[in-house]
């Protein structure tokens, strides 16, 4: 099978990402290591949202909740002196999956706007819970001075090593989502998105499949949360702010909804755009001062006129979820 152009571009981008540490060292610009690592972490979160939003048609407006759960799992364990990375990340993934199971079990019974709102409501509850827990700093949050420890294997305090860990995880997540949506399981999810009644008619009750997808997405996003808290070395309930859920959705749309590579393109585009609008010295001061105004305009224009996102620009000859 000949790979589609989109697949080739994805591989090219991953190859470029792999070269970032070398380039950053060559140009003496270690900052880009941080920036691209952050982009990749958000790409993992966006990829998990893409699974339920892009393929499953479940418009979750509370996906930041799992970013928060994953971050809290790592931060809280570290606060109590447990630094074992395997344990921390397992709790992050397992905890997020569990929370997603509870939220999903209630939410997936609803649909449309009700689904959007109930996922938002659950995330708001977790957010307010986060800012009320004094032990973990409330809204101040707490510093996570010692990163997740993987004795003898890898040291996350080394920026380059951490970078490659994130890159590897991103590749695994993208592959996982890709395999998942093209499996029998994924067929049911995608069929339920386009026609709920028909899915039922051919003998599948979509509920358990949707719930499973919701839980998997939560678990992956929990992993992103564990990475994010290591990236910032700081735990804060801000990770669960409702605007953050909106940003994740924007990344999915901007990159190209329902495509394998979309979340990565979207995360990169949004975070680079924010950076450019604020800091690019060629832009006039009026742009810097009101940069969110221009971000808003880009958002509206993308939704109205570039629905297929960046990945849509690279669309190959055939349609579908081939990435």
């Amino acid at each position: 099978m000949k790979p589609s152009p989109r697949t080739l571009v994805l591989f090219a981008v991953l190859a470029l990402l792999a070269a970032v540490p070398t380039l950053a060292a060559a140009f003496n610009q270690p900052f880009y290591l941080d920036l691209f690592r952050r982009i990749m972490i958000f790409a993992i979160a966006a990829a998990s949202l893409n699974l339920i939003l892009g393929y499953g048609g479940m418009v979750s407006f509370g996906h930041a909740a799992y970013l928060g759960i994953g971050a809290y799992a790592v931060g809280v364990l570290a606060h109590h002196g447990i630094h074992n990375g395997w344990l921390q990340w397992a709790v992050a993934i397992g905890g997020s999956a569990l929370v997603a199971l509870v939220i999903g079990a209630v939410s997936i019974r609803t649909s449309g706007i009700y689904f959007i709102m109930i996922t938002l409501a659950f995330t708001q509850m977790l957010y307010y819970m986060g800012i009320s827990i004094e032990e973990y700093g409330g809204d101040d949050g707490i510093r996570v001075a010692k990163l997740s420890q993987f004795e003898g294997l890898i040291d996350l305090a080394n920026p380059t090593a951490f970078y490659y860990v994130v890159l590897a995880l991103l590749a695994v997540v993208l592959l996982l989502v890709h395999r998942l949506v093209n499996s029998r399981f994924g067929m049911v999810i995608r069929a339920a998105k386009s026609n709920d009644a028909r899915t039922r008619a051919i003998g599948f009750s979509p509920y358990p499949y949707r719930l499973a997808a919701f839980v998997i997405a939560g678990a992956i996003c929990g992993l992103a949360g564990a990475l994010l808290v290591n990236q910032t070395a700081y735990l804060t309930p801000e990770f669960m702010n409702w605007t953050r859920s909106g940003e994740l959705m924007f990344m999915v749309i901007l990159g190209g909804i329902g495509t394998t590579a979309g979340p990565l393109f979207g995360a990169a585009a949004l975070l680079l755009l924010e950076d450019l609008l604020q800091g690019w010295s060629l832009l006039p001061k009026l742009v810097h001062n009101f940069w969110q105004f221009y971000l808003g305009i880009v958002l509206v224009l993308v939704v109205l006129f570039a629905k297929r996102g960046l990945a849509g620009l690279l669309r190959g000859s055939k349609d579908g979820a081939d990435g």
């Binding site: 939003l53 418009v59 407006f61 449309g112 706007i113 959007i116 909106g246 959705m249 924007f250 749309i253 909804i257 009101f290 969110q292 105004f293 971000l295 808003g296 305009i297 880009v298 958002l299 509206v300 939704v303 109205l304 629905k307």
Partner: peptide
């Protein structure tokens, strides 16, 4: 007007963008 026939996702995002635009316009 162009959003009525779109799905909820597009509407959420476009109006999220409008929030930013309105807030910054007022700030200007």
């Amino acid at each position: 007007r162009t959003l009525y026939e779109r799905d909820h996702l597009d509407q959420v995002l476009a109006t999220f963008g409008l929030i930013l635009i309105f807030n910054e316009l007022i700030a200007m």
